[in-house]
Simulated scan of single mutants.
Amino acid sequence: MGLKQGKVLVVLTNVSSYGEDSEATGLWLAEATEFVDELIKAGYELDYVSPKGGQVPLDPRSLKKVYAKQGDFAIKNSQDFQVRALKHSKKPSEVNPADYVALYYTGGHGVIWDFPDDEGLQALAMSIYRQGGYLISVCHGVAGLLNLKDEEGSYLIAGKRITGFTKWEEILSGKLGKVPFVTENAVKQRGADFQKKRPFASHALRDGRLITGQNPMSGRAVAKLLVESLATEVN
């Protein structure tokens, strides 16, 4: 299997609470670590970026053993992930989009606040996309795709088959009243064809160079779709 030359950029949140609500949130661990694991196994190098750069908070719920496996903790506790992802993530201004074949928006509720309108992330994403790269998201990470627009000013996801965290999953998570918008509704409002399976079942799909996953159980499936897609371009 050949490798398309270039690295993969992983986008992380800087937000540690639900807006003005003091309940803690942040990156959902497995949505980063399972993707990272698959890409490293496939031979890709990764970098980590966040809207503000620097420290990335972890959602404490995502550290419970019912949600995180031994492999997730192994990556979390590695020196590379601790330093380059959780403590010293890059700022968008420190990243050269020409180095990357894909950009991946991780999830966790925090991203709803800092992904959708961050101009630095938007510029990176569209540069990578225009040079033939892939844009990927999982769960709430689809918030990073919501406001991207093409050269004609149309939403990039309009008319595309897209998935993300569903309204029913938000209800089951007990967070419907704490989020500023529901990702499923926001995707539909931008003209995308929202696809979903039963709550908390792994589900990932590709439409062109957009790859999206429904929920925290979908990070590995999204990663495999990306690796397959990149390999097809080389072979």
Rank of each mutant, 00 (worst) to 15 (best):
L63P: 01
Q55D: 05
G71L: 12
V36W: 15
A68P: 03
R198Y: 08
A98R: 07
A123C: 02
S17C: 12
M126A: 06
T106I: 08
G53V: 13
G6I: 10
G219F: 11
A143K: 02
Y100S: 03
H109M: 07
S229R: 01
N147M: 03
S127R: 07
G132V: 12
K224T: 14
V66E: 15
L103E: 08
A223W: 12
H140C: 03
K41N: 13
I157T: 08
V83Q: 14
K91Y: 05
K149R: 14
D118W: 04
H140D: 09
E151H: 09
L148K: 05
N185C: 03
Y155P: 00
D193A: 04
R220F: 01
W113G: 01
A30C: 06
S22D: 13
R206Y: 03
A98F: 04
A231D: 10
V187Y: 03
V56W: 09
S78P: 07
D150M: 10
E119Y: 00
A221D: 15
V83C: 00
G71R: 15
R61T: 08
I40L: 15
E31I: 08
S62V: 10
F194W: 10
V56Q: 08
L172Y: 05
T163D: 05
K4N: 02
I128T: 03
N235D: 11
K167M: 06
L135R: 04
R206P: 00
Y105V: 08
V56K: 06
Q79H: 08
A85N: 07
V49N: 00
H88D: 13
V234S: 11
N14W: 09
E119Q: 15
L46A: 06
W113T: 03
Y48C: 05
G54I: 14
K178L: 14
A74G: 00
M126I: 14
E94L: 02
I171R: 07
Y129R: 13
A42S: 14
L39M: 15
A158N: 05
K87F: 05
A24Q: 14
D207N: 15
Q189F: 06
R84I: 02
K91V: 13
G108F: 06
V179F: 02
S137N: 11
A221G: 03
Q214V: 11
I40T: 12
R161G: 01
K4Y: 03
S89M: 12
D114L: 06
E23F: 12
G26M: 11
T232K: 14
S127K: 14
S50G: 08
K167I: 09
P199V: 14
E34G: 00
R206M: 13
G213F: 07
K87T: 09
G108V: 07
H203R: 05
R190N: 05
I112K: 00
Q122C: 04
V111F: 00
D21L: 07
V222C: 11
A102G: 06
S22Y: 09
K7V: 10
A221R: 01
D193E: 11
E184W: 09
Y129A: 09
P97Y: 12
A192Q: 02
K149A: 08
S154C: 09
R61V: 14
P92V: 12
V66G: 09
L145V: 11
G19M: 06
G54K: 07
Y100C: 06
L156H: 08
Y67W: 14
I162C: 05
D99G: 01
G43Q: 10
G107H: 04
L225P: 00
R206A: 15
T106K: 01
A223S: 12
S218K: 07
Y67R: 01
W113H: 13
G132R: 05
